[in-house]
Amino acid sequence: MKLFSWLRPAGPTLTAEQQQRLEQLPSAQTLGECSLREQRWVVVDLETTGLNLNKDVVLSIGAVVIEDGAIDFSQQFERTLQRSDHKPGPSVLLHGLGPSAIAAGTDPRDALLDFMAFVGDSPLLAFHAPFDQHMLGRALKDSLGYRLQHPFIDVADMAPLLCPQANIREAGLDDWINWFKLQVFERHNASADAMATAELALILFNRARAQQIHSPLNLQQRLSQWKRRQQSHSF
């Protein structure tokens, strides 16, 4: 036993099967120069106990795949995570996940392994991606000891970059849904919000191609340039 090793917090406890699944997860790929249409994208949305990045936890994960320039309805993902110590808060009024749904959920370790196997090596899209990226990354680290390295692109930044004429930079998902007149019949659960985000992303990919943005890497570069300009203008 190494000196002071007892001071280090123990890592997550995994079964042999879970450990094997963890080791078999593919490595994340960096954004490349294939076409936007050729890239497989995973559009993700999380429902959480709240908005505190350090204390709140993930309650459910919804995701859908964009591939070959369309939403692939055969590739959809939905899991509710079991949280034995969860006490319902105000967020239940939005996502509707009550105590019975949470109690009947999947072991968080299995749910997260299922999700990362679904993701594979694909990049992720989300609306207000930094929140989802942080919450998902913390959940993976706490439950699996896994370090999330997949690229995330924020659809909330793509929209004002590609549609400056809308002049609604600080808009939420509903604002962009209304601006594009999308027919969305359900909101505020992870799967429905992922689907709405995917529909918005498809429109934005078409706008990107029209503006000579043809690859995931090019899109990431343009977004970085745009964000730097926004930050410089705010000072």
Rank of each mutant, 00 (worst) to 15 (best):
H134W: 03
D157A: 05
S224C: 06
D174S: 09
K181V: 08
Y146Q: 05
P130Q: 13
P130N: 13
Q133D: 11
D121V: 08
P151V: 04
A196H: 01
G120H: 08
N218R: 11
L173C: 08
G145L: 12
A129C: 10
Q221D: 09
Q221K: 12
S122I: 04
P216Q: 03
P164K: 13
I203V: 09
D142T: 11
P108R: 06
L223S: 04
Y146P: 03
D175W: 02
L162Y: 00
L200S: 06
G105M: 08
D114S: 10
A111Q: 11
I203N: 01
L202E: 06
A198H: 02
A210D: 15
L124K: 02
H150I: 06
R222F: 00
A129M: 11
P123I: 04
L182G: 08
E186D: 14
N189I: 07
D154Y: 01
H134P: 01
D193V: 00
A156P: 14
A194Q: 01
D114Q: 13
L148M: 15
F152I: 07
A156M: 06
A190H: 06
L140R: 04
A210V: 14
A129V: 02
M116N: 02
F115W: 12
G137W: 09
L136T: 01
P151M: 03
S224D: 12
Q220R: 14
L148Q: 15
E186P: 00
A171P: 15
G145W: 15
D114A: 13
L200C: 02
F205P: 01
T197E: 07
A156V: 04
A166D: 09
F205G: 00
M116Y: 03
L113M: 10
G172Y: 13
A111N: 06
L200P: 11
L182P: 11
R109T: 05
M195G: 00
L124M: 10
I177N: 11
Y146H: 09
C163N: 12
L173K: 02
L219K: 00
S191G: 14
Q220E: 14
R169E: 10
F205T: 00
H188N: 06
L136P: 01
I177D: 10
D174P: 02
G145R: 11
Q133R: 14
A111C: 12
L136K: 06
I168Q: 15
L112I: 04
A104D: 15
N206R: 15
N178I: 06
H128L: 14
L202F: 03
N189C: 13
L223T: 03
V119N: 05
A159C: 09
R222T: 00
V184H: 12
W179E: 07
L202A: 06
G172Q: 14
A156N: 04
F185H: 14
D193E: 08
L140Y: 03
L204K: 02
F131W: 05
R147Q: 15
P130A: 14
R169A: 07
G120F: 05
R222D: 01
G145V: 09
Q165R: 13
